[in-house]
Design a binder for these strands. Structure first.
Lengths: 227, 227
DNA sequence: CGACGCCTTGACTCAGGTCAAATAACGTGG
DNA sequence: CCACGTTATTTGACCTGAGTCAAGGCGTCG
């Protein structure tokens, strides 16, 4: 199936947005769309010749598992994000859908060719990769020094940011794309600790909860520096 | 000062190794070498127009600080590693020398131009960036589930790997490039905990210590799965 | 020799993990 | 729409691993 770039939700923001119309048209012939439902695995760690993909709608998680099978989430992918190591012989981590998602998938070899043909594209991916690196390091820094409640607070703020379409304002009310367990495994905490942290934040008046997933930011400033 | 690419220690492995002789010669005109001693700051977080650099000899750390001024090390840079966000308006983190180091430094604008001129170079940096991302995520995964002793053990193994010149065998005996405090801040632990973990590992017969920094791997297998 | 910085060790504390149970949200089929 | 089973979330009680505080050892450099 060919791709409908014209109606693509991330036409303006994905890596391929740096291509002009004809180039993009050519690239789209090599790709195909794919839909995933929550929990479906896009790539599994160790896959040889895993493909590459741009996320169009939905959300993905990148995760690894320790020897007891406990999941650790290493990154979230939001729309217009790119996944796939073009240079490694096999995938390093699992990539799994958090919600119903739409992707634009390319075989590794086709992507390699596209990189050769379009330096602009390579450059765009380099930029994206450096941003991913930045976020991975932010997540690393988040773990340090702070109490569990602070970590959860900061993380909620980051999710609010991501949930918002406007670039720098967090959305004031949003639905968590993650279960408690997933939040816990991003922060290296337990489900219970995350749950308690949310209760604490609500008692402090920093947030209000609406059902299990709905979050309203009441006092965002307090999220950064609490307890 | 111009660069002596001919005698460069990382001539074969750094990003610029993908350039042919003339291209490299041209690039070297834009760069200059710089020497750092332990503790010297290469870039500080927030620097506008921070440059880019390839590490030739020595070792660097990438770090951030929490509001109490505690350092958190986010990454180590080894020879032939590349540092510098070409696309961000300012540096995200501090980069500091761990040991006497030699670098090959380029102004951001010159590097941008080089990327435009040499798609090969962009590609090489993309590859490197993806590797950095992989290592950042490995460090993230290391924190999860494991006891302090396991973390230190795994980390020592990684350092042994890095200290070795051969690609896949850890060096059997090496000197730690990091103080206890720096190890602690990479793992999100305290100095005391790291020290106790090393004592435990030695008691278990996994390692032997030679002075404060010398490490001999006695039973590497035990480092991965201990206590 | 003395001072300073780094490392180790011990005693004590506490944040967060573990175990267990109650409650709330959700989906499914009748 | 409701009853029910399933899964996610919250809460409580208790325990432990790692942090904190404090002291002492070891090297190194001036």
């Amino acid at each position: 199936m060919s791709l409908a770039c014209e109606t693509c939700a991330v036409r303006e923001s994905a890596a391929c947005s740096v291509l002009d119309h004809d180039e993009r048209e050519a690239l789209s012939k090599a790709g195909r769309t794919r839909e995933l439902t929550r929990g479906e695995v896009l790539f599994a760690a160790g896959d040889e010749d895993a493909a590459c993909a741009t996320l169009v709608t939905g959300a993905l998680k990148v995760c690894s598992y320790d020897e007891d099978g406990n999941e650790r989430i290493l990154a979230l992918i939001h729309p217009s994000g790119f996944i796939g190591e073009m240079f490694a012989p096999f995938a390093a981590h699992d990539v799994v859908a958090l919600t119903k998602s739409t992707l634009c998938v390319f075989a590794k070899a086709d992507m390699q060719r596209a990189l050769d043909d379009h330096p602009k594209l390579t450059r765009a991916l380099l930029r994206r990769s450096q941003e991913d690196l930045y976020w991975a390091r932010q997540l690393l820094a988040l773990g340090s020094g702070r109490s569990a409640t602070e970590q959860v607070g900061t993380f909620l703020l980051a999710l609010a940011q991501a949930a918002s379409d406007s670039p720098c304002h967090p959305s004031q009310r949003f639905e968590l794309p993650l279960t408690r367990g997933e939040m816990a495994s991003m922060l290296g905490l337990t489900i219970e600790t995350v749950s308690r942290a949310m209760t604490t934040l609500e008692k402090q008046g920093a947030i209000r909860r609406h059902g299990a997933r709905g979050i309203e930011l009441v006092d965002p400033a307090r999220l950064e520096g609490s307890v």
